[in-house]
Design a protein around this nucleic acid. Structure first.
Lengths: 228, 228
DNA sequence: TGTTGGATTTGAGCTAGATCAAAACTGTGA
DNA sequence: TCACAGTTTTGATCTAGCTCAAATCCAACA
């Protein structure tokens, strides 16, 4: 049985949407898995037995093409989940998942749903919300890849990070730059050059720490790119 | 009240998943909208009042960046739907929608759900299925944009089209090449050049008609690209 | 404290795809 | 049948981002 800090659970949106009964029922059957950086959690095409929630560290979702190239589809941190829909409907995972830092993942089996009243309805609702969030994020990504430059995508990512750190102008990148490059759809060398281009608009990057002197300047600069 | 050919409805997966009662109830309150090519159906950011199903012609989902560039996020043909999740949960549309051929759209209001037993549960299920399909397609797109060449993406699209035409080696493109270019994340000029590159592997394109001499050859060629 | 393997940066080309411009084609209505 | 407007193709350049190679940097660990 899962032993998860109650405090930690409160921060997981997907679980907060459930009634205490259903939540406890699910958690009582849940498993947690601790993994080291580099370990694979699940494979694309495998039957998704469980809904996974990252409770510590970071996980990347990715695909590998027949030619052996890797595309990072998303990176998930604390409280974020994946495989929600296939776990509920019974389908296969669309992506593989690997820990990019040491991490802990909570795995919920939705198929043997408890007998609580409304369990199914509550779960559907929660999973739909999660799907909506994922679809928005994917739509943003597609938009970025189709009509923005690599440097613009990096700028956007940094502003978003800054936002998640309560608007702090200085923060630490949550994972390495190789993964970040993959996430933004470029090579590590290009990411390095994108960072140096942003130096001119007051973005300093030293080690994993990034400092945005003036978010407004950065935002303006990004808009002026490719006006036409 | 909607007047929709029953025969046509049978081909719409989302509706087929519903019980006759719930389906009829929804359809009795539905509206259809006929639009000319170029007309806008809905705007990104607007509250999604209805779930939309394309019953005739083609519709593109797209976003326009602050700089005025357009990113086509998806193209939908007969029986395909959009805005499912926000229509059910009550949220805003993530994209704008425009007819790219003369088209008809069926609009279902999910908020005033009928009193049929299970209406809500059935709808959740159906919408979840639709979301799963959309997420898979978006994941494919992201993978393609990140690690495939423009020509590879075109080849993939053509094979998929051929598949939807019962594996026929000759078929007509469902919409113009400007839209197709946007959908594949490139400029019309590049699309034209991608087509001419595929001539060497037996893909003929004349007017809107495409002929794939040998799908296997095309598939092989795509794999040999960028092996490394 | 030195070593080692990975991560990151820098440098020097190269190329896919964009841009800009013009020509060729297509359908549509007068 | 002709002319017009939109679509598609072709040609000539330009450039962002990739590739290949080497130099640094860095943290873990003996």
């Amino acid at each position: 049985m899962a032993k998860v800090c109650a405090d930690s659970i409160c921060k997981i949106e997907l679980l907060r949407a459930l009634s205490p009964e259903v939540r406890d029922c699910l958690l009582s059957r849940a498993r947690t898995r601790d993994v080291k950086r580099g370990e694979t959690l699940s494979w694309q095409g495998d039957r998704a037995e469980t809904l996974k929630i990252v409770t510590r560290g970071w996980v990347k979702l990715f695909r590998v093409s027949e030619e052996g190239h890797e595309a990072v589809v998303n990176t998930l941190g604390h409280g974020q989940s994946f495989d929600e829909v296939p776990a509920l409907l019974g389908g296969e995972s669309a992506v593989s998942a690997e820990a990019i830092t040491d991490a802990t993942v909570l795995m919920l089996n939705l198929s043997d749903i408890c007998s609580c009243t409304n369990a199914r309805a509550e779960l559907s609702q929660a999973v739909l919300s999660a799907a909506q969030i994922h679809m928005n994020s994917m739509t943003n990504q597609i938009e970025g890849l189709k009509i923005k430059t690599a440097t613009q995508r990096l700028g956007e990512f940094l502003l978003q990070q800054s936002g998640e750190h309560d608007g702090l102008r200085s923060f630490v990148l949550p994972f390495g730059k190789v993964v970040l490059a993959g996430m933004l759809g470029m090579k590590p060398e290009s990411l390095s050059r994108a960072f140096s281009r942003l130096k001119d608009v007051g973005v300093c990057s030293a080690g994993g720490r990034v400092e945005i002197n003036d978010p407004a300047t950065l935002r303006d600069w990004m808009l002026q790119q490719s006006i036409r």
